[in-house]
Design a protein around this nucleic acid. Structure first.
Length: 933
DNA sequence: GGGAAAAGGTCATAAG
DNA sequence: CTTATGACCTTTTCCC
């Protein structure tokens, strides 16, 4: 029988906490930690609200008690208009209002004059009784009552195995259900109480998990009678205390659980191992303790708890990766003992976590913060000698376009918009329609020309233009407002050119917008859009149909997976089952390494570009261990985007310091080299490329990038590598050091196999690879030869030029035809270009059809391959040309799908606590009201 | 099958 | 206008 619905009187807070044992506390002054506060819904009213709402006709005719304008309803305890409601919200948003008295206190606050004096208007609000009712910070439970283990509010039962209030129950359930990935804007140490529990969802969810809420702990139905009857005091020690209220008085001494939760000294011994429990001492309810769920037969560790599917799916571990390897791995003698690995737990949980760790026989240390995150600070002395860091940031143009569109909240470009991936950033900022007054072609030519001298340095080993050529900072921010440094005239290009801190911050803001969307809306919305802001610590977007390149923070990528990719991965040393990463602990280094394996483009090329550029030039490798927003913030503050000159003594002002190589032929193959300024010539550049390519292929120990989460593993198995060797071990190539060594990939492979529970056959990851090493070497040699030919051509051109007109830092111009094509990658034009090159080199060119550059170079050295048809046959790749594309030239089917996806998915307006930005050094926070009406 | 308890659903509401 | 929240309500699950 449904009960009659009650109508709630808006703003009626009377009766809150009536009948409860809450203590009424006056509101705190100045607010509590964190000024951010989510809409907390009816949470401020605890008792069921009465049907006290006046009839609509009464309300409609009522006047605002503040200004006399027509009231819109009852808000904050008074009948007021919307402007006054908003005014009151603004005044009380961050604690006490900041309005100062600058009058005699008798100003007219009528409708017409209400904006004249904020002080008097706010006084009027207070006078009529407007108030924000909040829950008390501390709640005391009466007899028989339990407090919520998460926030301390009154619990109304056991939810997910733990006594919680209704709100936390619902909150936790939502978190699990909706795959939310919350971000703490603080230090993951937000204190939770009934009043501020909505301030930080990340910490609230962490707390929920930390106290043991879990789907595994769900106990449906009626508890067994024997559950209460067969327990001795000792056996009851670890049980939720409320269960004993059914059988005994509430004077039960503190149990292990309550003692830990309340930080009291338990009266019973805490050293009993759960292993000692008699099998007859059946505990039907999982005993939930902080970080551990003890089970009589099979105690599980915090790690096991943390890596349960729900914990992972909820993104719990993504925000602060607490572990590096699995328990199974830990049992191997040849692998690190995870029992002793430091484990990261939420702040305030160290003691209890350590306690229970010891209780079940673990000898593990716990820390509340990433012990590695501060490593870069330990090398801070060099910060005294700083020079601006020529950061090379990359944004995929198409992805940044996505970003803009999403954030702008405007429609995607019209289907007939030409060159949408490029031109949208040049489009009208609100309609996405190409303005008739603008010549896109000319603009792009101008853009390309402006960076032409740098573009050549972005040319990849395979001759393709580096993606960063087409990188720009999207004129982001909502409603078309651009980042502060964006002048609105032409797209700012961040492409192999020095960026100022302001530029970086601008880019950061532009991209973080999307990141926030990703983290807030969850992975699966964005999978549909095929967008991700990659973070090495985040797997928020993960779907078998989408791959994103892992990047140091800001790589925006869109990379659909094709069957060809799967095949490639299957025949490489990557995992056969791409979805296998789901089985790995989220946020763990292993998973990240796995993702490197997945970092395969639709061309079958393994992209290591995300590992190549930025982090090498960064003052430390900490980009790879960004585990939270705070980490990023700290990194900003510590590095100030400068690099110790002692580390990079002679950076080329434009070229950055590193040259990296994507082998394109397999994972775990990368090499890099630093060029000094005087060495930064094209010849040296390509010589280095050639050298690197051979190094990559010839090296017995394929370098594998490990981040600091692997430091523990590294130190145990490679004692010569200091544990504090920051970040990527490939750093050895940048900062030569006797202390840094590369990691044989076999070990990584070994880990993978063990983690997957598979038998490791032979550690020859390339056994099934389609090419043998010699082929690759020849192919890369040919590539290098091609590049040399290009250089020679350029040199010949240079000699014909007037020396005074010769560019000082570049002589190779982008072929004009490339600049006129979509992203410079029009296949027809590109093929023409390459045909010329190949002809120059007297290399058989493909005869027909579309082609993919990597394939060309992969097979070019195979003597038995004489036509592109054979190449296609071997690679089994198909490039579908579809006339439905606006310009009639789909690159592939995925592009078409993306295009259609783009059209069907509208961006969402996102609010909430994850709203960017946090304060960045030296830059004023973004004005959230920065809108264009 | 009844009872008990928690999971799960609904929707008014605060807040922006 | 959107969103998150949580008090209340309904359904599910399990024990007796």
């Amino acid at each position: 029988m449904p009960t009659a619905k009650t109508t709630v009187l808006k703003g009626d807070f009377t009766g809150s906490y009536e009948g409860s044992s809450y203590e009424q506390h006056p509101p705190t002054q100045g607010g509590e930690e964190g000024s951010h506060r989510m809409g907390s819904g009816p949470g401020h009213n605890v008792t069921r609200r009465q049907n006290l709402a006046p009839p609509d006709n009464v309300l409609n005719s009522a006047a605002c008690a503040v200004c006399g304008d027509r009231a819109s309803g009852n808000f904050f305890g008074a009948t007021v208009c919307l402007p006054c409601k908003s005014f009151f919200i603004r005044c009380t948003k961050d604690g006490e209002p900041a309005v100062q008295k600058q009058c005699n206190g008798c100003c007219d606050v009528s409708k017409e004059l209400r904006n004249r004096c904020q002080f008097c208007r706010f006084q009027r609000c207070l006078l009529i009784g407007m108030t924000r009712k909040e829950k008390p910070m501390v709640v005391h439970a009466a007899e028989g009552q339990e407090l919520c283990r998460v926030c301390g509010d009154l619990a109304n039962g056991v939810h997910f195995g733990i006594f919680t209030c209704e709100g936390c129950k619902k909150f936790f359930r939502r978190g699990l259900k909706e795959h939310k990935s919350y971000v703490c804007r603080g230090a993951h140490d937000c204190q939770l109480n009934p009043r501020n529990r909505n301030n930080c969802r990340a910490c609230r969810f962490w707390k929920c998990a930390a106290v043991g809420m879990s789907r595994d702990a769900i106990k449906m139905g009626r508890p067994r009678k024997t559950f209460f009857q067969s327990k001795t005091d000792e056996d009851q020690a670890g049980l939720p205390p409320s269960y004993f209220h059914h059988k005994q008085s509430n004077t039960t001494p503190p149990t292990q659980l309550t003692a830990l939760l309340d930080n009291k000294t338990p009266q019973r011994s805490l050293n009993r191992s759960p292993h000692r429990r008699s099998p007859t001492d059946e505990v039907r309810y999982p005993v939930c303790v902080p970080h551990l769920q003890l089970h009589p037969e099979k105690p599980i560790s915090f790690y096991q708890w943390a890596t349960r599917s729900e914990s992972c799916s909820a993104g719990l571990l993504g925000s602060e990766p607490p572990c590096v390897a699995s328990e199974d791995v830990g049992r191997s003698q040849s692998l690190p003992n995870v029992q002793t690995m430091p484990m990261i737990v939420p702040l305030g949980s160290v003691q209890s976590a350590s306690h229970f760790s010891a209780q079940i026989g673990e000898n593990r240390t716990f820390t509340s913060s990433n012990p590695y995150s501060s490593l870069f600070r330990s090398s801070a002395p060099a910060v005294t000698q700083l020079q601006p860091l020529p950061v090379s940031l990359r944004l995929n143009t198409d992805a940044s376009t996505h970003s803009v569109k999403k954030y702008k909240g405007s429609k995607p470009p019209a289907p007939d918009a030409p060159d949408h991936f490029v031109s949208t950033r040049l489009c009208d900022q609100t309609s996405w329609a190409p303005p008739a007054s603008r010549d896109f072609h000319a603009e792009r030519l101008s853009l390309m020309s402006s960076v032409n001298d740098r573009v050549v340095r972005g040319r990849d080993i395979d001759g393709a233009l580096d993606l960063s050529v087409r990188t720009n900072v999207a004129p982001s921010r909502k409603n078309g407002v651009c980042p502060p440094s964006y002048n609105g005239e032409s797209p700012r290009v961040y492409s192999m050119q020095p960026c100022s801190q302001e530029d970086v911050v601008s880019l950061l803001r532009a991209t973080t917008t999307t990141e926030r969307v990703v983290s807030e809306q969850g992975a699966f919305d964005d999978v549909e859009r095929g967008i991700k802001i990659s973070r090495m610590d985040s797997d928020s977007v993960h779907d078998e149909n989408t791959r994103s390149s892992g990047g140091p923070g800001w790589t925006v990528s869109h990379r659909p997976i094709t069957e060809a990719t799967r095949q490639f991965v299957a025949h490489s040393d990557g995992p056969e089952d791409l979805s296998a990463t789901d089985k790995l602990p989220q946020g763990s280094a292993l998973r990240q390494n796995y993702r490197l394996c997945e970092n395969v483009s639709e061309t079958g090329n393994v992209s290591l570009s995300s590992l190549s550029s930025m982090h090498i030039n960064s003052p430390c490798q900490s980009y790879y261990q960004w585990t939270s927003t705070k980490d990023k913030k700290d990194l900003f503050e510590a590095s100030s985007w400068k690099v110790p000159t002692t580390l990079v003594p002679s950076l080329h002002p434009e070229m950055s310091a590193s040259i990296s190589l994507n082998s394109g032929l397999g994972i775990n193959r990368a090499s890099s080299e630093t060029l000094r300024t005087e060495e930064c010539t094209e010849i040296n550049y390509f010589d280095s490329m050639r050298k690197l390519s051979r190094d990559v292929l010839m090296s017995e120990h394929k370098t594998i990038t490990l981040n600091n989460q692997n430091a523990q593993y590294t130190s145990e198995h490679f004692p010569s590598i200091p544990q504090h060797c920051p970040g990527s071990l490939r750093q050895e190539k940048v900062i030569p050091s006797d202390n840094c060594h590369s990691i044989p990939s076999e070990h990584s492979q070994q880990l993978r196999y063990q983690l997957r529970g598979e038998k490791q056959s032979t550690i020859t990851p390339r056994n099934n690879a389609p090419f043998v090493k010699e082929d690759e070497i020849r192919a890369l040699n040919d590539i290098a030869d091609i590049m040399h030919a290009v250089i020679e051509t350029s040199e010949r051109q240079k000699t014909t030029l007037n020396p005074q007109e010769t560019p000082t830092h570049s002589t190779i111009q982008i072929p004009e035809e490339l600049t006129q094509t979509k992203l410079g990658f029009n296949l027809v034009k590109l093929r023409e270009y390459w045909d010329k090159t190949l002809k120059l080199l007297n290399v058989p060119a493909p005869v027909d059809g579309d082609f993919e550059i990597p394939d060309i170079f992969r097979f070019i050295a195979k003597e038995d391959v004489t036509s592109y048809e054979e190449i296609k046959k071997i690679t089994s790749k198909k490039l579908d040309v579809d006339s439905n594309r606006p310009d009639g030239l789909w690159l592939c089917r995925e592009e078409e799908q993306n295009w259609k996806c783009l059209q069907t998915h509208m961006p969402r307006n996102v609010r909430g606590e994850n709203r960017f930005p946090f304060a960045l050094p030296g830059v004023a926070p973004i004005d959230r009201d920065m809108t264009v009406d």
